[in-house]
Design a protein around this nucleic acid. Structure first.
Length: 300
DNA sequence: TTTTGCCGACACGTTACGTCA
DNA sequence: CCTGACGTAACGTGTCGGCAA
């Protein structure tokens, strides 16, 4: 059974290393559809992993063997002989019961022996595609590994690639197609979960920031009502940085190329802070901060 | 040039099967 | 053994783009 990480997905919630990417610009729409752009997503969906290597070679073709033991090759059109039909009706052959006894790594000698026989009976022709048989095939680990590798290269297949892959794996092109469709769906689901988690964290941080700012507003309003009191107080923390020049403290430094809509009085804030006196009415204007808030780290 | 029908590929939701605890 | 949860192969359906008439 493949774990989540086995999908080759990087579920890290950290921001991408690419500094040019705005952390708040989420790739909510999966880019998987595009065959020309493998993965523009900020999240590394197609990180090369070595999970394939973890499969013991002894397990290979196990599923195929099981299928063989069931007497049903799902890759072939079910051709029920009279004998088989009788057996089916008599309830003698229960495919599921046979399979369940062969679970895990416990492989009987018969199981191992059948693998060689299986290789010659898995040949599938395209003409056999379709039909109404919905017998489910568990792909072998080898097949899954090849498909995964192929998916990492291209998450979509053109008809030639599909045909070649099907031939290589001994599967029907339709099976390869279905596998890729399901794989894309799984990838998209994972990406959605990651994005969802990311947005959740953004929301939490913004809520926290909002709470903090509201508290500060309350403090400032209280100070405004008692000016004689605020003169002896430490200025609010968020106002210790000049929104214009982003300097925390120091004498005002007129900047000819700076923004023209900045109240020059604000530049005196640092000095005022040092002197513990406000030569201007701090409450008269409220310059709009032009620093973007990092939702994930609002205090940075 | 626009319209229309066909076809293939795909996304999405669902079903059914295999496996495991 | 039985059962429920889970993963996933397979399927059905709707949509979209390309193409020819």
């Amino acid at each position: 059974m493949l774990e989540n990480q086995d999908l080759g997905l990087s579920l890290s919630l950290g921001f991408p290393e690419n500094k040019t990417t705005n952390p708040l610009q989420l790739n909510l729409i999966s880019s998987l559809v595009s065959s020309t752009s493998p993965s523009p997503s900020p999240f590394n969906l197609f990180q090369k992993t070595s999970w394939i290597d973890s499969f013991p070679s002894s397990d290979r073709n196990l599923e195929t063997c099981r299928t063989f033991l069931k007497g049903i090759d799902v890759n072939r059109i079910p051709t029920i002989t009279d004998a088989e039909e009788e057996e089916e009706e008599a309830g003698v052959s229960s495919p599921n019961s046979t399979i369940s006894s062969l679970s895990g790594n416990k492989r009987s000698e018969r199981e191992i022996n059948c693998e060689e026989e299986l290789d010659c009976c898995r040949g599938i022709s395209d003409e056999e595609d379709g039909e109404t048989c919905r017998k489910k095939l568990r792909l072998t680990k080898d097949q899954s590994a090849v498909l995964e590798e192929s998916f990492k290269e291209h998450n979509t297949l053109n008809p030639k690639q599909k045909q070649a892959l099907a031939k290589r794996l001994g599967l029907r092109p339709r099976q390869v197609e279905v596998w890729f469709q399901n794989r894309r769906a799984r990838t998209k689901l994972k990406q959605t979960e990651v994005d969802c988690e990311f947005l959740k964290r953004c929301c939490e941080n913004l809520t926290e920031e909002n709470r903090r700012l509201q508290k500060e507003v309350q403090e400032l309003r209280a100070l405004k009502l008692s000016p004689q009191f605020y003169m002896q107080m430490t200025p609010p923390t968020t106002l210790t940085m000049c929104p214009s020049c982003e300097r925390v403290a120091g004498p005002p430094t007129p900047s000819p190329s700076g923004p023209t809509n900045v109240d020059p009085r604000v530049h005196q804030m640092g000095l005022a802070q040092q002197q513990r006196s406000m030569p201007f009415n701090l409450w008269a204007t409220s310059p709009v901060p032009h620093r973007p808030i990092n939702a994930l780290n609002p205090r940075s």
